[in-house]
Design a protein around this nucleic acid. Structure first.
Lengths: 190, 190
DNA sequence: TTGACAAAACTAATCATATTAGCTATATTA
DNA sequence: TAATATAGCTAATATGATTAGTTTTGTCAA
């Protein structure tokens, strides 16, 4: 029996690929072990059981998202930055549906490490929206709003919830633009 | 052994209560059977296994949502109707977190019956937004956008994703108002 | 009133998964 | 080259879903 030569990172990568191709429901120690060519108890050498695996998958997702969003925001500001960030967000959810869903389903935000990782993702949004110079509470409300609409769109799209055959990218563009128009209207008014 | 006197509806109600109080992850035939005081194989007399139970839970959720949203929209139009609908949506998600999540997770939209039930919920949104007389595609984009932001907010809130201690109702109000402002700005412009 | 029948609920058995305990073999390194 | 840490294994246990087949209970017609 030649050793498989696995390590925690290889296992994590395999899990990410598994959920992105077969869906989050298909993630089990049994299916992952089979994909890796080992028996499922051997996974305990690399991962803290199924809960541990799920946690790592969520953490991994947050890191990937933070990096992708940071890249998308560099060198841009205001509406340009917001549109670029929104695009990167939707793109990530589409390319990594399983990992994205894992960040929603498996992230226990009472876990400080997870909280920190999730916070670093939100921080990118905070920085991008800081460009508008919104006051205190309004800045927070706006971050929450932006997160809500991009997550909501990605989530419904992934569930197949937009039934009508009308271009989804266009819908997303309209949504982001409507939100931006709302922010500008709000700033102009008072 | 006196008969428990269950029927499919009683079972469904118990399942709804279970997921709303203990969370969706806690739903199993075993836990539901225990709650009902029967053995889990007996559930097959009322429900088509776990997949069947989940499906019924999602369908039940859609019906409840459609009814609640319809009630909230009656006698109102435009911004009033939109705000009332948004409020009813968030209220439902908060009061019935398990059932709400079930509509997201367990609804197989390739199932015609499920599709119809989900469609009837969306139809309420369509009718409310029809009040703005938006043209064709834009009307659809707007419905998609509104669904995205309210679902996104409800979903993130339920996950505990809004960490900062700042009033969530206010955030939601600001979000809906920003969206409305965006719609109006869009209508005024072109 | 009673006999027949549909179905509610049960027990027993099978299968899949997670997990733990303890063993074995392999890589690494002192 | 011998010692050691550990990757991976087998065996065993527990829980949950599901199926098959049995018992029991309501109900309803004769």
């Amino acid at each position: 029996m030649p050793r498989a030569g696995l390590d925690p990172n290889t296992v994590l990568q395999a899990a990410a690929e598994l959920v992105d191709t077969r869906g989050l429901e298909e993630l089990s120690l049994a299916s992952l072990a089979q994909k890796l060519g080992i028996r499922s108890p051997s996974l305990y050498n690399h991962v803290n059981g199924l809960p541990g695996l799920r946690r790592k998958l969520a953490l991994y997702g947050f890191v990937q998202m933070r990096d992708a969003f940071t890249r998308a925001s560099i060198g841009k500001s205001k509406d340009d930055a917001v549109r670029s960030l929104a695009e990167a967000y939707l793109d990530f959810a589409r390319r990594h549906p399983g990992v994205y869903e894992a960040t929603q389903r498996f992230a226990d935000l009472s876990d400080p490490t997870v909280q920190k990782a999730a916070g670093e993702v939100v921080e990118v949004v905070v920085q991008v929206l800081a460009g508008y110079g919104l006051q205190d509470d309004l800045a927070i409300h706006t971050v929450r709003g932006f997160r809500s609409l991009i997550h909501g769109f990605a989530s419904i799209e992934q569930q197949g919830g937009f039934g009508i055959p009308l271009d989804l990218n266009e819908s997303f563009r309209v949504l982001v633009d409507t939100f931006l128009a709302g922010i500008h209207a709000r700033m102009d008014n008072k």
